[in-house]
Design a protein around this nucleic acid. Structure first.
Lengths: 318, 318
DNA sequence: CTGAAAGCGCTTACAG
DNA sequence: CTGAAAGCGCTTACAG
């Protein structure tokens, strides 16, 4: 039998309101004696308040929904949510994940029904959807674009600077062909291009490819010949290009220089190993968690800046 | 202002019970006229029933919780959950994800509070935790071990058969060193070993490595020399071994034969490309979804067999 | 075919 | 310092 607050109250010999007060942060109103009795009863019965009852009474639940892009739930993202889950649990909040693929309407239903304390989204949410949630009084925590944009711009800049300093003059930027998997491509490419211009170099070529030999080969065709240095959206893109180049007998980095991004485990295992951009994942995690938390707490300065140090890791592909 | 069933009732000129009945599958009790009026009112107001109210009244919510191992949420798993989300939505159920990393206690709290219709877990759940949920009347849907075991056994067998048929005689099985990421390693290895025995071969060597050059190199040391054929837990493991072998100047497949598993995009991009084990992802997805659904529906024959065709994809590493 | 009423489990003024 | 009562939004016998 599932214990109710009534059961706790009876066992402790107090009223239900007393139980409720003590359990909800107004314990200071009661004597130590009463508090202890309630605490004991809760423990003995294994009482867990019903979320439904509480939500109904309070008008909002203790749930926080995080929308995850169903295309890219890498281990980093996972670690972020893992940390966030724990952090929120300490504040009595429950983080629950939701694949964001599904229709706005479906999210709407979920949000309406669950009355979550907040909805966290990693990618920008359409205005109308945000409005819908706002109407229902649900807070939406969006990515901190100010700093998010910064990080991506930083990455583009870093890749460009590295390549230019190395003496490369014919540059290109390689996107992932599938746009859903290339959410940060544009800001990175833009900054990459700008860095080229400010160094007096021509506009970089822009490539789009999938993670397969054919597509990578076609991308190489588009380049028109050897001697390019290309900054890649991620290490997988770099690996695909590396493979296509090797097939053609091009030497990397002499005929084609490659700088990846993410510093994946596999990036050390190509031949030659990839020069890439890395960052301290735990730092990113901590920063992201801090950012979400500060917004949830409505602390005045919501803009905890997510300051991520990003650096190129030189190996042998550029 | 958020519309309530009361608002709908007033607008439609009926009682709240009528609204509720019509919305909950007893529409046939009412005249077309009444139904239409209610439907209109719902649409005009944008009414969404409150999950809290409904849960309280019914004793169980429309939520299904899926526990995800926080270590391995690959794109396959993601697709499965994506499909499941949609499928469940059509039945009025909402799938919500939960990182399973956190304490049993925390899940307990969530389950207690949310009163989900079911909890889906991919890995076997500890008995006591299962018991706890059962006590609360929450159904636990565990992996269908009968067929799950089959598939993994199949994979081990397939890798062994392929290698043996190719003429290799010195076999080894390579696990991922981190056990959390190697959930299916044991059944696969077991079947792999059995297949060796039944072909009159010696017991296969067993390797454990991480996805990095040092670890892969050490694994090669353990092998003691050239001439082995190793079945890998996944393509990443195969890639690591391939890299270490290449570094030593070993030829693949002559000095070291490798068969991976998963047929990842990257497995086509190594040099040489990996021979691996592939399967039709959409088939797996469909089967998994069917399996969960049938258990949810309590349909008699809960054991919809997950029949996945798995096959080796021959490329150049073995 | 439809409505009044009770009840789900909790919280929160309010009164004492 | 503590309890009786109302109310959160819904569903479901039950009576008509």
């Amino acid at each position: 039998m599932i214990p109710r607050s009534k059961d706790v109250a009876e066992r402790a010999g107090v009223s239900r309101s007393t139980v409720s007060q003590i359990l909800n942060g107004h314990a200071e109103l009661f004597t130590d004696e009463t508090r202890a009795r309630v605490a004991d009863a809760v423990a003995e019965l294994g009482y867990q308040p019903s979320a439904a009852g509480r939500t109904l009474a309070r008008g909002s639940s203790d749930i926080v929904i995080a929308l995850i892009p169903n295309t890219t739930f890498g281990s980093n993202l996972q670690d972020i949510y893992g940390a966030l889950t724990n952090e929120l649990a300490q504040r009595g909040l429950t983080l629950v994940l939701r694949l964001s693929q599904d229709s706005a309407e479906s999210l709407d239903r979920l949000a309406m029904g669950l009355k979550p304390r907040a909805v966290i989204t990693l990618t920008a949410m359409p205005e109308d959807q945000k409005a819908a949630l706002a109407t229902r009084g649900i807070e939406v925590i969006e990515p901190d674009n100010s700093s998010g944009a910064d990080v991506n711009a930083q990455i583009g800049e870093l890749q460009a600077r590295y390549l230019i300093d190395k003496g490369y003059r014919s540059l290109a930027y390689a996107h992932l062909h599938d746009e859903r998997n290339d959410p940060f491509g544009t800001p990175r490419e833009l900054m990459f291009a700008q860095e080229c211009r400010s160094s007096g170099l021509p506009e970089p070529r822009v490539l789009h490819l999938g993670i397969n030999p054919e597509s990578a080969d076609a991308a190489l065709d588009q380049l028109g010949g050897r001697g390019f240095a290309v900054a890649c959206y991620n290490d997988d893109v770099a690996t695909a290009l590396l493979h296509a180049a090797t097939q053609r007998g091009w030497k990397v980095p002499d005929d084609l220089a490659l700088v990846g991004m993410d510093n994946t485990a596999l990036s050390r295992l190509t031949t030659p190993p990839l020069t890439t951009v890395g960052y301290d994942a735990s730092e990113v995690i901590a920063a992201s968690v801090r950012s979400v938390l500060s917004r949830l707490d409505k602390s005045d300065d919501a803009r905890t800046s997510v300051d991520v140090r990003v650096e190129v890791i030189e190996r042998a592909s550029a």
